[in-house]
């Protein structure tokens, strides 16, 4: 698959000496959804702002479909749509007008049919003549997405698209984003919600202290780092792991035994464990397996870096 955005050694140092990005390298593949995870102040927004032309890089380069964002900014920016984190809008403007404005600003001829299609896809069509100040926060964010899509970008940056949005609307937003992916739009989103990355992303990038510490396929990441645990509930509580089973990575927690294993390895040792439990004369009432979530993986990654 072709890399549509190539970020090379990107560094952003502010006048006060603070380095928000320290040599970021990142290739984004055409058609994927990549989620950038990171704690507050990690550099997520700075990275997006620099790629989109809002912030000037101190060093390094970014190419969008082969076009350098500085030398060939017209073509590079023409391919990008940006949905910022804050819902800044022109309060007195009407929804449809502000979307048409965005299309014009990006150098495209007025196209009412396309604007209608975009507004309908975001369930905004019946609000097209509302003033922006009359809309709720979630609706405003949809308008920002509509503005970003008005010039038919091939790459869409969503900076925390669901921050401050209620659960139901968040799920709607996910549907919108999935729909865009189906149309072939490459999507880069930053998020605080690991759940969001888990639900949507093809790949996950972790950014911390201005550096990308990891980029990996979401599934591979979860499998590679995801430890599984098997919980065995016992009919009668034991205080410690029985002598006969002490050679296994087992822990006793009151009425249950907890077994940790790597779900990727060829021999998980589960069959042997169950046999030994039976041989030890213990009675099981229930079995549960649990995989660590992306959140746990993320927390452990960021901690390692600290």
């Amino acid at each position: 698959m072709k890399d549509i955005v190539q970020v090379k050694d990107l560094t952003k140092r502010y006048d006060n000496g603070f380095e928000a990005l320290s040599g970021v390298n990142l290739n984004i593949r055409e058609g994927e959804i990549i989620a950038l995870l990171g704690p507050n102040g990690a550099g997520k927004t700075t990275l997006i702002s620099t790629i989109c032309g809002i912030t000037q890089a101190s060093a390094g380069s970014v190419k969008v479909d082969g076009h350098d964002i500085v030398r060939d900014y017209r073509r590079a920016r023409g391919m990008i749509g940006l949905v910022p984190q804050e819902t800044h809008v022109e309060s007195f403007e009407k929804v449809v007008k502000t979307v048409q404005f965005s299309r014009g600003l990006f150098g495209k001829r007025r196209d009412d049919a396309l604007v209608e299609k975009v507004l309908r896809s975001l369930s905004l069509w019946d609000k097209k003549d509302s003033k922006l100040m009359q809309l709720s926060g979630g609706m405003k964010r949809r308008v920002l997405i509509a503005k970003a899509l008005a010039h038919e970008p091939r790459v869409l940056f969503l900076d925390e698209p669901t921050a401050g949005v209620d659960v139901e609307l968040r799920k709607d937003m996910w549907e919108v984003v999935r729909g865009l992916k189906e149309q072939g739009v490459t999507i880069i989103l930053t998020t605080h919600y690991i759940e969001e990355a888990e639900a949507m992303a093809d790949r996950i990038g972790v950014i911390n202290k201005g550096q990308i510490s990891l980029v990996e396929e979401k599934n591979a990441l979860m499998q590679r780092l995801g430890r599984k645990t098997l919980q065995i509930e016992l009919a009668e509580p034991v205080e410690a792991v029985p002598q006969a089973l002490s050679h296994l990575p087992l822990a006793a927690e009151g009425g249950k035994l907890v077994y940790s294993y790597d779900s990727q390895s060829e021999h998980t040792g589960i069959t042997g464990l169950l046999n030994e439990i039976r041989d030890a004369g213990l009675h099981m009432t229930d079995l549960q397996t649990r995989q660590s979530s992306l959140e746990e993986i993320f927390v452990s990654l960021v901690k390692e870096d600290a």
């Binding site: 989109c52 920016r77 990008i80 022109e90």
Partner: peptide, 10 residues
Amino acid sequence: GTIYEHLSAP
């Protein structure tokens, strides 16, 4: 804050 759009436009 809507200036972001002008700055990111071609």
